[in-house]
Amino acid sequence: MALYDSLEEIKNYRYTVALPAPSLYSQFNNLTNVDIVLNALISMGFDDVFEVSAAAELVSEATRKYISEHRDDAPFISTACPAIVRIIRVKFPTLLPRLLPLKPPVEIAAEIARAKAIEKTGYPSEDIGIFFISPCPSKVTYARSPLGVKKSQIDKVVAMKDVYPVLLQHMTHDESKLTPIASSGRIGIGWSNAGGESAGLITDNYLACDGIMSALRVLSDLEDEKFYGLKFVELNACNGGCVGGTLTVENPYIATAKTKKLHRYLPVAQTHASSYEDIDYHWSAYVEYEPVFRLGNSFRESLELMGTVEDITEQLPGLDCGSCGAPTCRALAEDIVRGEATRNDCIYAFHEYINNLSNEIGFLTRSLNLSCGNNDESMKILEDYIKKLTTELERKER
């Protein structure tokens, strides 16, 4: 279940570090200095900030090195998008050896941030809260059920759309008041857009694809060995890359344009592996095949549950939007059958549920009016209030 955390969780730690995703910068108009955003994060209550884009530059270097050392095993598939990795482990097990066995930037950022915080404060690890500002539900799921590591160093995940309005209140464009914090450049921040990770490899032998349906076609073609000469395959479940995540606030195409504009004011890169020689970029736990037949404790039980999966899938919208944290509607149906999710994790099903609930309450109030002789005007006011509440719930879930 991709349920993100509240900003109020900051109060539960003695020291907190914000990990802003690279796509956060593209949510703001006319941004020319990322320190404006980073300083605002400090102002709104975090004790420190470590950019995920800085970690992305480290992972870019590690990826270049890994590919050069394993040329015969190429092409490698990016593991930065948890939704894509999950699809591969369920539907394309023959491609598991193609997965790049390196931790995603957000995990590297969390490890560095925690180590720095412990060194700076002397606090025990449990007193330090590492908060990832996420553009996507699948990365919320990753923090709770990580891939490639046994336990994530991320403590809490907050939605970008929740952080955005708070940040606006704390942002200042008076650069004389800013503390220099930024530690990434075009390579790291470019990871927010489809093709950005590949661009950081400084090679032409790559394929970059975004959108869940397009990614499925590419994976199918990879399985059929239709591509030749590729070194790297970057797949993003969200349209446009992470800027298209459902927890963002900006249109992904406008966000992409904003990122390109911001690039004018950035160096190529600012963070290099030579400054973090002790980091282990490699997976500590390999991703294994997860067949659908594991739905039950036996083959027969799994077959029976597969029928339930089909029924639930038919009830879902079939948009494969990823808003629930699962890569496809069928994957959500499987999670529901396993007891790891509910139908209301689907945002469209949730809206339907709220609408039905509103109708039921409206019916009850009318019944109450008839049985108790209550004033029509008071009942109408109550019904109007319920409708407004429903509208507000729907607005917040967008």
Rank of each mutant, 00 (worst) to 15 (best):
I108F: 03
S183M: 15
K161L: 10
L167I: 07
I128K: 11
K151P: 04
P146G: 05
I88V: 12
L100P: 02
R86W: 09
P93R: 08
A143N: 04
A143Q: 05
I187W: 03
D73S: 11
R98D: 04
D155I: 07
S192T: 15
R89Q: 14
A113G: 06
I77C: 10
P82V: 02
P104N: 00
S145Y: 09
A113F: 10
P104T: 02
P146A: 00
G129K: 09
D155A: 03
S183T: 15
S192E: 15
L96I: 15
I181K: 08
E126T: 06
I112C: 02
L95M: 04
A110V: 08
K91M: 14
P135V: 11
P97L: 01
D73Q: 14
F92C: 11
P105R: 00
I118P: 04
E175R: 06
G129W: 11
V158P: 02
K150Q: 11
D73W: 02
Y142H: 13
A117H: 09
I108N: 00
I84K: 05
E126F: 10
T94L: 15
L178W: 00
L168P: 12
F132D: 00
N193K: 13
R89Y: 04
E126N: 11
L147C: 08
A80K: 11
H173Q: 12
Y164S: 13
V149F: 08
E111I: 10
I187Q: 09
K120M: 05
S134Y: 00
E126H: 15
A74P: 09
Q169Y: 03
G188M: 14
K116S: 13
K139L: 15
E175H: 04
K156S: 03
T121A: 07
L147S: 09
I108C: 01
V90E: 14
R144F: 00
R144N: 02
S145I: 12
P137N: 06
Q169V: 10
G148C: 07
P137F: 12
S145N: 14
V158F: 05
E126M: 11
P93I: 10
S145L: 09
F132T: 05
A115L: 15
K91A: 14
C81G: 03
A159G: 13
K139M: 13
C81I: 03
H170D: 04
P124N: 09
T79E: 08
V106I: 05
M171I: 11
I187N: 08
P165R: 11
L95G: 01
K150T: 12
I88N: 01
E111F: 02
T121H: 06
P97R: 00
K150R: 13
L96T: 07
E175K: 10
T179A: 03
R144H: 01
N193T: 09
I88A: 04
F132K: 01
V140E: 00
P97F: 01
A110K: 01
A109W: 01
I133Y: 01
I133V: 08
C136K: 13
I84W: 00
A74Q: 06
G129H: 07
A115H: 12
D127H: 13
P146E: 01
H170L: 07
I181C: 08
V90R: 14
K103V: 00
A110H: 00
A143C: 08
L102N: 01
L100S: 01
